[in-house]
Design a binder for these strands. Structure first.
Length: 478
RNA sequence: UCCCGAAUAGCUCAGCCGGUUAGAGCAUCUGACUGUUAAUCAGAGGGUCGCUGGUUCGAGCCCAGCUUCGGGAGCCA
């Protein structure tokens, strides 16, 4: 079952037992009486110190043990004489699996900027920061599945390729096998997609929600967790062209149940990371604190662990869109004309408005509900007044909208009306509309951008740093 | 896509009013020293100043275009 992981060896009581350690060299320090090598295998942020005596190995061999090289070390696990660690390995044999020429290997023992590391995304998982992020990302993904499984949800695999062009969630990437240099044409001169692979136009999915609803109308509670694609030319710290979305969809859930679930879900998943990723979160917290040292006291943010504990321990603020507009209208920045965009009932809240509510006014996560129908999607259930819909957005400090959801319109007539109203051909959505025709039921769901969650938990400022190989405009190198 | 800023050594940056041989710290290499903790001290090597064009006796520096990167906005998750 493979070698022992460094994570486990570090927990083992030293009894001079023989051990084999495999990992990548972080640093090597040579002195008259001992040579110290810090090895890391990614199982933990902590390194294991392996120690050799000078003269024990040839100079030629030691020259190949450099930062970034990969070693197999055999030796004895002993109590460390030094102060920085409790155990270490007294080396009896070294095998160099792979060298890393220090003149070429870009990850030398020094600080590197996140921008530089983005250019070497194939190597950045070997850094403390990125290995910590990737371990936390894994823990969160695991916690997502565990949470839903415990609550009786079924994991539904919705398609990555869709022929539906009516989801309206954003620009889509086209999927085709047509020869772009020799496109088949109809008699009218248009591209003839009947000759394409699927016999029609196809795209990468922008959301699994519509298919998710089909699942909920049979299994009651389902969730999706898969890649999602948006071809928008978005260049921000909060958007990716390829990201992972979690979309639970529940029959017999109304808006309040939906909010309760969203809040409980986020809290439980963050709690899992707090319990299981202590070392990594501590490392990231120290990194952030170090980064903010130069900022004036009043601009510094809460230490990462305190921020996460605060979110887990306090109820989210819930209010309607209409109430939020009232608060904004009474706010100081509005009265002083500091907002770039005007405030008024019916507007789509912009980042500055959301930030004011979350970061200045309430100073905690906020759930906004009952938005005007005009600024929300066609599938959201109309309120009695006919003006607003049963939508909910969960807003987080720093990253803005982390969750968008709603109670869905279950009335066939009303949904059909909305579909026509926004100019979608009902023919394209016949299968979706039939869920309302046959055994319709009140139901709700939401979508959560996984990377935004990872961003919040790790405290990373740029979403491109919380996914191993980010996809964004002009970037698909790795 | 829009606004603002940036691009100089492997990395992070400085480079004065446009002037003669482009600097620092870190990293790397060499030596010294030391049960060391991203060790310490000394020395050395390392540059097509993003690309294209322009202004000028002379451009890392000024101007234009392009490319890429960063921050903000829009779109959203």
């Amino acid at each position: 079952m493979g070698p022992l992981q460094i994570k486990d060896i570090l927990q083992t009581a030293p009894e001079n037992q023989s051990v084999v350690v495999k990992g990548w060299v972080r640093t090597k320090r040579e002195s008259k009486n001992a040579i110290f090598i810090a090895l890391n295998d990614g199982s933990t942020i902590n390194n294991i110190q392996v120690v050799a005596e000078p003269g024990q190995f040839s100079a030629e061999l030691l020259l190949t043990v450099t930062t970034g090289s990969c070693l197999k070390v055999t030796g004895e696990l002993i109590a460390s004489q030094g102060a920085g660690q409790t155990v270490e390995v007294k080396i009896s044999d070294i095998e160099v699996y792979g060298t890393a020429d220090p003149e070429e290997y870009p990850l030398q023992p020094k600080k590197h900027s996140l921008e530089f590391l983005r250019e070497i995304a194939h190597l950045r998982p070997r850094t403390n920061t990125f290995s910590a992020i990737l371990r936390i990302r894994h823990a969160l993904a695991f916690a997502v599945h565990q949470y839903f499984n415990d609550k009786g949800f079924f994991y539904l695999h919705t398609p990555v390729i869709t022929a539906s062009d009516a989801e309206g969630a954003g620009e889509m990437f086209r999927v085709t096998t047509l020869d772009l240099n020799n496109l088949p044409r109809t008699e009218e001169g248009a591209i003839n997609f009947k000759e394409d692979f699927f016999g029609r136009e196809a795209n990468l999915t922008v959301s699994g929600q519509l298919e998710g609803e089909l699942g909920a109308m049979a299994l009651s509670k389902i969730y999706t967790f898969g890649p999602t694609f948006r071809a928008e030319n978005s260049n921000t710290t909060r958007h990716l062209a390829e990201f992972w979305m979690i979309e639970p969809e529940m029959a017999f859930f109304e808006l309040e149940d939906n909010m309760d679930l969203a809040e409980d879900f986020v809290k439980k998943v963050i709690t899992y990371a707090l319990i299981n990723c202590k070392d990594d979160l501590n490392f990231l917290q120290n990194r952030l604190t170090e980064e903010e040292k130069n900022k004036p006291q009043n601009e510094r943010s809460l230490p990462l662990l305190e921020k996460l504990a605060f979110v887990v321990d306090n109820p989210f603020e819930r209010l309607t869109y209409t109430e939020a507009i009232d608060i904004l209208l009474k706010s100081k920045p509005h009265k002083e004309g500091k907002f770039q965009f005007p405030v008024g009932w019916g507007i789509d809240l912009s980042s500055e408005h959301e930030r004011y509510l979350v970061e200045k006014h309430f100073k905690k996560p906020v759930i906004l509900t009952n938005y005007p129908r005009e600024i929300k999607s066609f599938y959201m259930k109309l309120d009695e007044d006919g003006k607003t819909v049963r939508a909910m957005d969960v807003l987080f400090p720093g990253i803005g909208e982390i969750i968008g959801g709603s109670q869905r319109e279950e009335s066939y007539e009303k949904l059909l009306g909305r579909v026509k109203e926004i100019g979608i051909d009902p023919e394209n959505l016949w299968w979706y509309l039939e869920t309302r025709k046959f055994g319709t039921a009140p139901h709700s769901g939401f979508g959560l951008g996984f990377e935004r969650l990872v961003q919040f938990v790790t405290g990373m400022g740029n979403i491109r740093d919380v996914i191993p190989f980010p996809r964004y405009p002009k970037s698909a190198e790795f």
